[in-house]
């Protein structure tokens, strides 16, 4: 959460414009998977800056630790052992966390006004004090990112260090990366930087190297340079062409105004029917007939 308030692009469950006179530059985090050594410094930096500590888990026999994102772990390294070419083992390491979609499914699904905010710089932020714990954001997210805390039933995820970015600093994870696999800047600059990296990777034999900035969610403000951009699924199931599920689009799209209108019309039709034909009464005669 940050104290920015004049640069809101979208606010959950809000039907009128939010304060948005201040237009900020679109930012992005670029994760160059080909440079990542899986040291998890970014995980530590994330914990430290945000001052949250996950429970100490147990060793599951693989490098993934913690095993999954949680309300207390907003970014985790995902380790995948793959053979893209036969007998040529590749160890793919992907830093997982919120992608900060331009078209955020979580925000679309959220029923609590102001619990999810999208700033004009592209950051999608949860404001937990407005969160009601329904978990709709989880249904809305195409990347399986938000987690509900067992302690307070609020949803948490990476904020892209909106509090740091708001005062001109880069996110904590970027600061800690020893190999330069993580870089942060304007989205434009990051795309340009990625292109240079992709040229380099292609020269080194990764002919399918490319940028992961999926357009199905309007592009993201966390992007990947992948050596196998044609098969993002290799990287611990990174979706190839993510988009908001049609179920969620239906649920949070046309049905909302249509059903609300239907209910209002139903009541009005009843009222005017009464006004037109009057009540359905049993005549007095038949009452007395009985006597």
């Amino acid at each position: 959460m940050a104290l920015q308030s004049l640069d809101i692009l979208r606010r959950s469950a809000t039907t009128t414009p939010s304060p948005g006179v201040r237009q900020t530059t679109e930012v992005a985090k670029l994760i160059d998977v080909s440079k990542c050594i899986g040291c998890k410094a970014c995980q530590s930096a994330c914990m430290e800056w945000n001052d949250i500590r996950d429970e100490i888990g147990s060793n599951a026999g693989i490098y993934d630790n913690p095993r999954d994102l949680s309300a207390d772990s907003w970014t985790v390294m995902r380790f995948s052992e793959v053979e893209v070419e036969k007998d040529k083992l590749e160890w793919l390491i992907r830093k997982d966390g919120c992608m900060h979609c331009a078209d955020p499914g979580c925000l679309k699904a959220c029923p609590a006004p102001g619990a999810i905010i999208q700033y004009s710089n592209g950051i999608v932020d949860f404001h937990e004090e407005n969160c009601i714990g329904c978990g709709y954001c989880i249904a809305g997210c195409p990347f399986n990112v938000p987690r509900i805390s067992k302690k307070d039933n609020k949803a948490y995820k990476c904020t892209l260090c909106s509090d740091r970015v708001g005062v001109g600093m880069e996110p904590a994870c970027i600061k800690s990366c020893p190999t330069g696999a993580l870089v942060f800047g304007t989205k434009e600059d990051m795309i340009q930087h990625a292109e240079e990296r992709i040229v380099d990777l292609k020269e080194r034999g990764f002919s399918n190297a490319g940028l992961y900035d999926p357009q199905g969610v309007g592009g993201t403000h966390v992007m990947y340079v992948l050596h196998h951009a044609d098969q993002p699924e290799l990287y611990h199931g990174l979706p190839k062409d993510p988009s908001i599920s049609p179920m969620v689009t239906l649920w949070k799209g046309i049905t909302k105004p249509l059903m609300s209108l239907g209910i209002g019309l139903g009541v009005l039709v009843g009222f005017f029917h009464y006004i037109k034909v009057g009540p359905n009464e049993v005549e007095e005669e038949s009452e007395s007939e009985q006597q």
Binding site: A139, G270, H273, N280
Partner: peptide, 28 residues
């Protein structure tokens, strides 16, 4: 879950419409 939220919303809408008719019939 995504199917369930949609089913829940549509079913609830139908239930509310049904009950509007029911309540009106009782008043009428």
């Amino acid at each position: 879950i995504r199917v369930a939220v949609l089913v829940h919303a549509v079913a609830a809408f139908l239930a509310i419409m049904t009950i509007i008719v029911h309540v009106y019939a009782a008043i009428w």
